[in-house]
Amino acid sequence: MAKTKVSPKATSSLGPNEVRKMYRNMLLARTIDERMWTLNRAGKAPFVIPCRGQEAAQVGWAAGLRPTDYFLPYYRDIGVMVTLGYTARQAFLSLLGKAEDVTSGGRQMPGHYGWRERHVITGSSPVTTQVLHAVGIAYASQLRGEDTVSAASLGEGSTSQGDFHEALNWASIYKLPVLFVVENNGYAISSPQSKEMAVQDTAERALGYGMAGVTVDGTDFFASYEATVQAAERARRGDGPTLLEFKMYRLLPHSSDDDDRTYRSREEVDAWKDRDPIQRMQNHVLEAGIMTAEEVDALRVEVQAEVDDAIAYAEAAPYPPVEDMFTHVYAD
């Protein structure tokens, strides 16, 4: 099977209303991200893991699947979660560890998603473990003859883990309906891709496992969406898994505790800001006549208001009672 590259062109099966919704998802993810960062710098949120620069691919791959599919996002996937219906309130409840947090009842750090109702499988901090879970989920779906797909996302740094390779091997042996979604943002904290692997594209790794590998411009929403739709169709047809690689750039440090000035130049970061996926999507909706400039401005105001409300709500929300920390260790 050959590795293919999807050209970043804005062709899509989505209608204008859907495109508007996708732009809103991206904008909401970005706004949540910005305000989380602000709260951290104000000393109100202990830890933030940003998504900035990765919104197009995140919203794209999540939208390319069905609600009945299984999602195993990694810690940067605010865009994925928003696309699956995660609200700003939910994001900030999780950020502040409040009882109402839908991902874990305030137990987990922010960015550790899980939401049974929306088929989002609970995740942890050791990277890449979720990729094997996606394979087991797909095995169960295939065994029962269901046409659901499972999709696990990960950073390109995680492709160094043994679990990644074991997962690809399993998935290709059984032609499982699973997508491996690599959000390649160029860095594993401080290590550039050149120190993580000897290949240019992580999708090349698919070749060794006899599965499809696709490299996509992850700053382009439409390319990300279409590549996912195609990979999901292959999986549902019984043609097996796909390694999807979305190339993009992490515009912020790894986390609120990181300082990227110690390992990369401002010139490099600024150059990527010219390819900011939000700006790119905005240009598209304006140029294609999907939204007017006034509508874009109004949407920004609306999203900001939603986030303002969410922060106020989450700050006022109660923490879980201390005695609740002893529940749910076992079934009884």
Partner: peptide, 25 residues
């Protein structure tokens, strides 16, 4: 399909089993 000769890798065996358990097996 139900008695599976797994590829040789223990993390894979347990990780895949966790996924199966998460999806009804």
């Amino acid at each position: 399909k139900r008695v599976i000769d797994a590829p040789l890798g223990e993390s894979g065996i347990v990780g895949v089993a966790i996924g199966m358990a998460l999806n009804g097996l």
